[in-house]
Design a protein around this nucleic acid. Structure first.
Lengths: 234, 234
DNA sequence: CGGCATCCGGGAAGATACTG
DNA sequence: CAGTATCTTCCCGGATGCCG
């Protein structure tokens, strides 16, 4: 018998009409926003979420998925046989949270304390592409790339000054990059030379990947505000 | 004697290179993002923050301000005599978090569970203007409005298809609106007729305020995902 | 094994009282 | 007014176990 735990009407809500405050009511709990992140590129299984959300415990993940489902951001679905596995997917409205990752990520990338060598999920890498992509640098370029990131296969298409990313086999890709996500990020965002990245493999037209790297640029780091010495302020 | 409590190195961090995850490391603690919100329009005093952040307790507010200061998002400053009061202000980089409120607020406004009748701070109201302002609706309009929101005096200027808001006396304003923030929000975002809003006073050229209201529109509510009945969707 | 419930320890958040 | 100290509540994280 389950106790329903009073469904937790969440007295733990901000009592604020501000849209941002209500956004935090929806995805402000720990891990909630990162769960949505992992769903941005399509449905995922419980175990896959748990593996990519490095450090989340099973019970918390269960709670978040329940809460997000109750809020209408996530839907539980069962794939058709013979797969017959249960997956979680973002609803249409849930998918529209994507711009939050762009602006939050772009802003946080300027943090002096940001460490790009930490683990990175395959979805995060794709979202980082969409975040840091600069249409002016891409110009009229058209290309399709494949990424093999451990278990995950992703595809990226640049065309008409826009970048699209999706989960799936990179068929027809001009180049396929195989590496762990942090390595790819070091190459694309950190502009590290591929030969310096041990473990990264570039199959196909390497020049395409080199051009691709040129379509991104990181924002400059924020001032550390210096030492707050007794010096006068202008 | 203070114990320094080991300064809390925050093992409570996501260990993730994703920019959004690091953003949550910075402003993901409860109340942290709303503290930044209140600082978006200039320095504030501790007591004022506590009043506008409806429900925050003093010790938590102290912790957040300390943490945000340690991260370089907030600076503690003492106003020059004769004021000589201590205020908290956002750093230059801290101010750049503003777009997060826009996209998060616009997204959350579509939530079926959003209640616009809840309390609203003066800063939140100004940010809601910047969030929902539509340049195409404003066209070539130019106007200056004043808002008297309890203790807070705010000014808004529309010009060149852009909207600016700042704290200060609305001198030179064509119209001055006096009301509690939720009432103003009901008029501007909810398109409620001024005469239906008991307690709102419009001094000066009321037609200017009426035009102003036309510059905003709320995004449609998200589908409640309906009951996943077998029924057909229109 | 994947999904989910239960129990427990530590610590963050909430509320109140107190101090300079 | 601007915090600090203290106590309580409850969330988060980890471990274990049930069940399809």
């Amino acid at each position: 018998m389950k106790l329903e735990k009073i469904t937790n009407d969440k007295a733990r809500r901000y009592h604020d009409a501000c849209g941002a405050a209500h956004g935090l009511d929806l995805v402000g709990d720990r891990w909630a926003l990162l769960v949505m992140r992992e769903l941005m590129l399509g449905p995922r299984r419980f175990g896959d979420l748990r593996r990519d959300l490095c450090g989340v415990s099973a019970n918390v993940l269960t709670q978040r998925l329940e809460g997000l489902e109750a809020s209408g951001l996530v839907r539980k679905r069962k794939l058709a046989p013979p797969a017959s596995v249960q997956v979680y997917e973002a609803t249409e409205w849930g998918l529209e949270i994507e711009p939050v990752f762009m602006v939050l990520g772009r802003w946080a990338a300027r943090s002096p304390s940001h460490d790009p060598t930490l683990p990175l999920s395959a979805v995060s890498l794709m979202l980082s592409f969409k975040t840091m992509f600069d249409p002016r640098l891409a110009g009229e370029a058209r290309m399709t790339l494949g990424f093999v990131l451990g278990e995950d296969r992703m595809a990226v298409r640049v065309a008409d000054g826009r970048l699209e990313a999706w989960r799936g086999e990179p068929k027809g890709a001009e180049v396929v990059v195989t590496a762990a996500p942090p390595l790819v990020a070091a190459a694309v965002h950190g502009k590290a030379p591929p030969e310096a990245l041990d473990g990264m493999r570039v199959a196909g037209d390497a020049a395409v990947f080199e051009r691709f790297v040129g379509f991104f640029h990181m924002p400059p780091k924020a001032e550390t505000a210096g030492a707050q010495v007794a010096g006068s302020e202008p």
